[in-house]
Structure formats: C-alpha cells, structure tokens
C-alpha cells in the first residue's frame, strides 16, 4: 500500500475542472447520486469532499461542498445529494440536472476526515441521513481493497424509504463477516422491523458499537445535533478524543 500524502498544502493550486453528469441514480425519494466524468481527476481519499460550482447563463455562480461517495478505486466520481427544501443548489442537483449537463468542480479537499485500509481499524462509522456519504466511500474502498479490517456502521435514517444505499449496504454486510451494519429509524418503522427505533444515543453506542478498549477509528457524520450528541457520548464511553473525527453538513438545529 503506497504512502498517502495527506498534506495537500504542498500541492499545486486546486483547479476548477468541468464535471459531466454521466448517470443519475435515484437513491431515495429525496436523494440522488450523480456519476460524473471529471477529466484528469487526481484521485482522492475516502472521506474527502469537493466543491461544486454552478454557473447560470448570465454568469451568476454559486458553490457548495459535497462529500465524495465513490471509492478511489471506482472508475468514476460519485456524489450523493439530498434535496433541501428551498435550497439553491441541492434542488438543482436532485431534480433538474440530467446526463450530459456540466458544472465546475474542484478537489479533493480535506485529508483529516479520511480513512484508508492502511490506517487500520477497527473502523467505527456513525451516520445520520446524508452523513452516510463520506462513510460510504470508506466502506466501498474497504470492499474494493478486500480489507478484512473489522468495521461497523451505525446508521440513523428517518424512515425505511430514507435509507440511502440500503441494498448495497445489505450486500456488503451479507458477504462480509467482518462488517456489521446496524440501522435505526427515528420516525416510523416497518412492521416486523428488528433494528433500532430511536435516535442514536449513548446506550445505542454502548450496545452496538466497538468498545473503547479496541481503540476503534471513529468517523461521525451528519446533522450538527447528531454529531454533537454522538461525539460527547463516545467520550463518556471512554473513547479517545484523538480517535473521533467528525464532519457536519447542515446548520444548527
């Protein structure tokens, strides 16, 4: 495994590239994935993000950050975007955009919230809603690298229909004894649901998570409320501060 340089400050300036939408995948009623062709993409680490910049025909521009959903091993870059009501960019990316459309993109950005199999494990991932995106890049990388590092995903969604990447996660877990995926549904649960039925809390982290004695590498991503609660609970459960990395997508609640 080559050494990965996570100090992009030594790199050249991050260029704006032109991404072309190749394929669109409807993930849930509010979430879409975009598979992109990005010429001369320099590669990335699972967990890193990019900036998207849209340009209107009158020159007006707007930009936002999106995590990379695809593994570095994948042939094309994937983003996964959740539609935010009244948002400026996410409604465009989740409803208007179609194959052949183009927009500006630059990255990869961030090297702190990143994991590769070279970093080791166990790998403890905790996601809320679209916070799954950078963590999925880690799981896809782990699968592509045929890593047997023990991994656990605790994933909170509102309803069964809102679970992003549900089938792929099921498939990963079914064929991999070292990977466990635990879902919790905070709003409604289907009949016969055997997973969690509330927000992620300290008890849930204690019952399902890796214990602090295993020194897991922990990544938490989601809305600020979830990230705050989870990170504090993990500290209370004895996990080391330095092993807990967080990323927050949304505004404060």
């Amino acid at each position: 495994m080559p050494e990965i340089d996570v100090a992009p400050s030594k790199q050249r300036r991050l260029l704006w590239r032109t991404a072309e939408v190749k394929e669109i995948i409807e993930e849930t009623p509010r979430v879409r994935s975009l598979v992109l062709a990005v010429p001369d993409w320099p590669g990335h680490l699972p967990g890193q993000r990019i900036d998207v910049r849209l340009t209107a025909d009158d020159g007006y521009q707007a930009q936002r950050s999106y995590s990379i959903a695809s593994a570095p091993e994948a042939p094309q870059l994937m983003l996964t975007v959740e539609r935010i009501q009244d948002g400026e960019i996410s409604p465009y990316l989740t409803a208007e955009v179609r194959p052949g459309d183009r927009f500006g993109l630059r990255g990869p950005i961030g090297g702190f919230f990143a994991w590769t199999s070279a970093v080791g494990g166990p790998l403890f991932l905790i996601a809320g809603g679209s916070g799954i995106v950078p963590l999925m890049a880690m799981l896809r990388h782990r699968a592509a690298a045929k890593s047997t590092i023990p991994a656990l995903l605790l994933y909170s969604s509102r309803t069964f229909e809102d679970i992003i990447y549900r089938e792929e996660l099921d498939q990963f877990a079914a064929r991999d004894r070292e990977l466990e995926v635990v879902h919790t549904l905070t709003r409604t649960q289907p009949v016969g649901w055997s997973g969690g039925a509330r927000r992620i809390d300290r008890d849930m982290l204690a019952d399902f998570g890796f214990g602090a004695k295993l020194h897991p590498k922990i990544f938490v991503c989601g809305p600020t409320r979830l990230v705050e609660t989870v990170a504090l609970s993990l500290l209370e459960l004895g996990h080391e501060r330095g092993l807990i990395k967080t990323e927050r997508f949304g505004p404060t609640g």
Binding site: L15, W16, R17, T18, R53, L54, T55, A56, D57, Y60, Q61, A62, Q63, E88, Y92, E96, V97, D101, R102, F103, G104
Partner: peptide
C-alpha cells in the same frame, strides 16, 4: 479553467438577499 461551463437550467437565487458589497465571491 478560463471559461466556466454553463449549467443548463440553473438560475440560482441571483442576487443574494442582502447588500452585495458585503458578500465576498462564492459566498
């Protein structure tokens, strides 16, 4: 990249809802 690609069908909010001289580029 000199010419940014036009994103078909994107109109955006246009003017930020506030004094433009207080909103830096890309914000």
């Amino acid at each position: 990249m000199s010419e940014p690609p036009i994103s078909r069908g994107f109109h955006g909010r246009k003017k930020p809802e506030g004094p433009t001289n207080r909103v830096p580029p890309g914000q």
